[in-house]
């Protein structure tokens, strides 16, 4: 018997993947109210409703039974494709499966820490080991990078904060488990709280970023208020919305 797998004979392979997904956070279980609101949104941005796959999040609803089938029908009528349900009671889970939808556990359980329990961005920097050499210092507490982060380069602090003493240029990427501090122009991508820490933040002296992200919530350059460009800002999560505020 041969253990060799004939590549041509394979019908598929399983691969892990991370895809961007729109979550539709339901605050009402009434299909009629959902229909009204969707109709309004559809007229505002028709481009969004192009058979867009969505995950229906029912975490904020406190109802054991949902008219899931009708909600799905309303969505489909507005060219949204429900692919899964997140949260809810056991009957909700069962009816999701019955409708051929996937089911995800509520998000809160997966979140490691909440805003209050996290030491905020201001303090851990001093604890980080300060290294004089230009080479980046890696450590569990954080990392200080001195110099320009250039296009194509990626600087990561998997645990703790990342401090960049210099600029982050367009096409560069800086990531941190905690907060990202840039003492210079931020022209590339900055991702803070990459493990889901919603209390993380991004600070920079001159905002020109291609992308800002805190705990997976992101804004592209196009989404940023042009008046804030070129100024010193802090970026943090406020009720799942990315807020950008001037530092001064």
């Amino acid at each position: 018997m041969s253990l060799k797998v004939d590549r041509d004979g394979m019908a598929f392979t399983f691969k892990g993947g991370m895809l961007p997904m729109t979550v539709m956070e339901l605050t009402s279980a009434d299909p009629e109210r959902i229909r009204e609101q969707l109709a309004g949104k559809l007229s505002q941005s028709p481009a969004f409703f192009q058979h867009t796959p969505v995950v229906l999040s029912v975490e904020q609803l406190d109802e054991p039974h949902l008219a899931l089938e009708r909600i799905c029908a309303v969505c489909r009528a507005h060219k949204l494709l429900p692919v899964a349900v997140r949260g809810g009671t056991d009957p909700v889970k069962q009816s999701s499966w019955a409708l051929g939808l996937g089911w995800f556990p509520p998000q809160e359980a997966g979140r490691p820490r909440t805003l209050e329990s996290v030491p905020t961005a201001d303090e851990p920097v001093e604890e980080a080991p300060v290294v004089d050499e230009p080479a980046p210092a890696a450590g569990a507490v954080g990392r200080i990078y001195r110099g320009t982060v250039r296009s194509g380069q990626q600087v990561t602090a998997p645990e703790g904060d990342l401090v960049v003493v210099g600029a982050v240029n367009a096409g560069a990427e800086v990531l941190a488990g905690g907060s990202v501090h840039v003492y210079g122009a931020l022209r590339g991508r900055a991702l803070a709280g990459i493990h889901g820490d919603a209390g993380a933040a991004i600070f920079c002296r001159e905002l020109r970023a291609e992308l800002l992200s805190v705990a997976g919530n992101y804004k592209r350059l196009e989404d940023i208020d042009p008046r804030l460009l070129g100024t010193g800002v802090q970026v943090r999560l406020d009720h799942d919305q990315l807020g950008i505020a001037p530092l001064d």
Binding site: T148, R150, S151, G152, Q153, N169, A170, G171, A172
Partner: peptide, 9 residues
């Protein structure tokens, strides 16, 4: 931008 990339290399 390309020069920036080269400087990184």
């Amino acid at each position: 931008r390309d020069s920036d990339r080269i400087l990184g290399l």
